[in-house]
Amino acid sequence: MKKIFWGTILIIALVLTGCVGTPTEEKTLIIAEQYGLAYAPLQVMQAKNFVGEIDPDLKLEWAKAGNTTAIREMMLAGKVDIGFMGIPPFLIARDKGMDWDIFMGLSQAPVGLVSSNSEIQGLADIEGSDRIALPQPGSIQHILLAIAAEREFDDAARFDQQLVTMKHPDGMSAMLAGQELQLHFTSPPFIFMELDEPNTHLVLGGTEAMGGPFTFIIGAAPKRVQREKADSLAVLKQALQKAMVFMREEPEETIEILAQSYQLEPEVLKGYLENPELNYTDEIEGLETFIDFMGRNGYLENEIAADEVVWN
């Protein structure tokens, strides 16, 4: 009897320690990232160990997430310190009371709405029965589409019931299958791969939708991390900035590193990276436009001031 009793206590204790999700004593940063060329500086930084160069004690742990919602939930639960995502998903979280700030931009990228239907040349050609694939409602892709819809039809929610939620690879294979799905709002490298196909064309570009340049992916961190791990955060930012410089100055080696992790041919990758709209910079552009649009159309409920959400 006694053995069973203590055995049970031991098991419960072990299980409970597993439930505790707070970061460990040593210096670590747990980072959530997603798949795509827009996250390239993260790969380069890791490969060249820029973090180690600046601060050998800082350990990085990585969590790959399927989508932005998953990243947000991981951050909410405290399982992850840093998340990289688009500005609209960040704003939605912020609007709902999450005390997160943007600590840097990561990339600007050519995103856009691709179609395999030659009869769809502009948004006006899209009928109510056409479905549009994109990563999820509330994503930057959705918001860009909505901004363009507001500008052209004065109806931001025009396409909201026509969305099909698909990860970029799934959306691409559905498009290329040539069946029901003929519209896909996507980002690099998928947008490049889709446009390489013979019967596809760009219906709406990201910059065109936005009315100007904008940051595609930003890095966000909760106030907790800003307080407790301020120096680590600064180190991360520095290391990423180094990676961006490296990518500009050493294109050959960059291609080598990235070709491996993205499983793309170096020649093909070179072509993608040379696209003028693909920029890796820590600047944050377009924040006010997003806040303004989303507030106006009910995607955000509260007022947010642009400078309040940026960390320095």
Binding site: A133, D170, Q179, E180
Partner: peptide, 12 residues
């Protein structure tokens, strides 16, 4: 089975 589903049954 998503890719197969889309192939056989569309997206509606």
């Amino acid at each position: 089975l998503l890719p197969l589903v889309i192939l056989w049954a569309g997206i509606g």
